[in-house]
Amino acid sequence: MKGVQLSMESYGLKKLLLATALLALPVLMIISGCENVQDRPVMRIGYMNCNSEAETLARFRPLTAYLSEQLDIDFKVVPVDTQDFEERFSAGEFEFGHSNSLLYIMLKENQQMQLIATEKRGQYGARTAGTIISRKGSGIKNIEDLKGKRMVFGPQLAPSGYLAQYDLMLQAGFDPEIDLDYYAIPHGSFKHEKVVYGVYFGEFDVAAAPALDLELMTREGRITADDFNVVAQSEVIPYCTFGAASTVSESLVQRFRKVLLDITPSTTVQFNGETIKVLDSAWISGFEQLSDSDYDPIRRMAKNANMPPYQEF
């Protein structure tokens, strides 16, 4: 009887040990996993908001996860408003930045940002252009015809939605501040689409439209090529750009660039339990390595239009 009791006790002890081991295993796994994540350095990428923070997060989280996976760095996504970008970058809120090409120039001139790679999207690849459009049949066919007309621009820091067109007019001896009857910038998100529709529906006579947005809207069937006159087109300029703070080591910049340049349309990443195509999810067709001198046309435009980083009062 005593023997039976002992064996019962030993059986209970074994069960207790087994249960403890089973409970401890996942806890240990979690702890070791946490330690691995903690081991990875943490860095932040500031992404310029095009339309909204939600859109920025949805577009760039998978790409950021892919960069983390490839570079073994825990990258965090920081959505940034265009107007706040320089201030937050100079305050050290993020080490890497993805912004339009005018912001890159501003950060290069004022904060010594290092150029990493340029995003490719649309027919111009890593480049884009600005256009001035009017409604077909309006009789507005060249810049002289803009005299006394109502114009709508894209956001002020948009290289192909504001700067390029402003510069085009100045180059033609047309001062938008004096020669236009009135000009405006739409409120809220989707400004580039709004300016195109502003002309389409007759709210404005002419608009500053990026060539890429016209292309996308035509492709999606929202407008047709025959709806508008392209009154003028700027020279081609680099599109959205990845850059790094001057404090980021040259070797990391090179590794970051290589990862971007090697991404192909079939590259995928595991994100939130899904296998996602990196480029598709970010609305990008690839990346290209341009040189800083490729951005000189934007420098010339900004100087001519008295815009940052060369603005003088």
């Binding site: 047709t224 090529a225 025959d226 392209v230 087109q233």
Partner: peptide
């Protein structure tokens, strides 16, 4: 040299 218009027209033909 109306390149932007030409590219848009090509975009339409692409459809």
């Amino acid at each position: 040299k109306r390149y932007a218009e030409a590219l848009l027209k090509l975009q339409s033909f692409e459809k």
